[in-house]
């Protein structure tokens, strides 16, 4: 299977190189689709409101407790914004691919000069264009917020914004993989939602368990000890596979100016996206073959 996949991945690279024209047409369609939807504008609005709420919460906490939550108050809102927008784009990719399968338009495209990889690349690029517009709004919001609270936009924040493209690519690719595997709209949406919720739940669980004070007389038979071990293992798994966890790790690495760790997490995210993308292409081809 691995040889088959690597051959397929190689062929997919070749397809991408020579399949630019069909990819461009698909890309333009998906760019237009995402910019036309009122839903996308609403999502960006909600993201900015949520970012404002988080920033306000952090500042109030700082005022009440005189404890600095983070060295860069704009970082958490940015992580949240990227998370929300990428989730939305991943969902859009799921709906986009499964709709094409269910409507029969994918069969028409693939019976012509469009390959699975150029089709999927068109979707990814179209979504990234939409993300660029959203990121511009987030940047505008950040500048406004920084001016109001008398901060400056740090280089680390700009670096995070650039790195966020990798996270968005990884989440969209995950969406593509799920839809290529499922090919049914509602099944794909449910699986996508379940994976996202599981990711969030495992990370919240780990933080909750981690926040419970350790008893000095704690033994191996202590249920909290067991739960800590389990959630620790699960959290490490999430760290490996979740683009959001990696983005979190990138933010932490930049806080401590650990650029090597930042680069490793960035590469890990890109690799995750690339593997998901070519698995999706391979699966979509496999459904045909």
């Amino acid at each position: 299977m691995s040889t088959e996949f690597s051959n397929s991945a190689f062929r997919s690279f070749a397809d991408l190189a020579i399949g630019m024209r069909p990819m461009k047409a698909v890309f333009r369609r998906y760019t237009r689709l995402s910019s036309l939807q009122i839903g996308t504008l609403i999502v960006v609005g909600i993201v900015l409101l949520a970012a404002t709420a988080v920033l306000q919460g952090d500042l109030e906490f700082l005022e009440r407790n005189a404890i600095l939550v983070t060295t860069d108050p704009l970082q958490t809102p940015l992580v949240l914004s990227v998370g929300m927008i990428s989730l939305f784009l991943g969902l859009s990719a799921v709906i986009g691919v499964t709709s094409e399968v269910e409507n029969g338009t994918l069969a028409v495209l693939l019976s012509g000069p469009v390959t699975t990889s150029s089709f999927l690349a068109g979707i990814v690029l179209g979504s990234l264009v939409f993300y660029s517009w959203s990121l511009l709004l987030v940047l505008g919001w950040s500048v406004l917020a920084a001016t109001i609270i008398n901060l400056h936009i740090s280089a680390a924040l700009l670096l995070m914004m650039a790195a966020s493209y990798a996270v968005v690519f990884a989440v969209i690719s995950l969406g593509l993989l799920i839809s290529a595997w499922s090919q049914k709209r509602w099944t794909a949406i449910l699986v996508y939602a379940a994976i996202v919720l599981l990711d969030i739940a495992l990370r919240v669980l780990d933080r909750f368990i981690g926040s419970v004070p350790v008893q000095s007389e704690s033994t191996r038979n202590d249920p909290w000890h067991f739960l800590r071990s389990v959630s620790g293992v699960l959290d490490r798994a999430v760290q490996w596979f979740s683009p959001f966890a990696k983005f979190d790790a990138m933010a932490r690495a930049l806080e401590f100016a650990d650029y090597q760790q930042f680069f490793l997490q960035l590469m890990g995210t890109i690799l995750f996206g690339v593997v998901m993308f070519f698995l999706a292409s391979w699966l979509l081809k496999g459904q045909r073959a």
């Binding site: 409507n103 069969a107 028409v108 019976s111 012509g112 000069p113 390959t115």
Partner: peptide, 16 residues
């Protein structure tokens, strides 16, 4: 690709 460029398909479903 070349063979597929010379072929066009109209499925039974609307596919539009």
């Amino acid at each position: 690709r070349e063979a597929r460029r010379r072929m066009s398909y109209v499925p039974e479903t609307q596919a539009i």
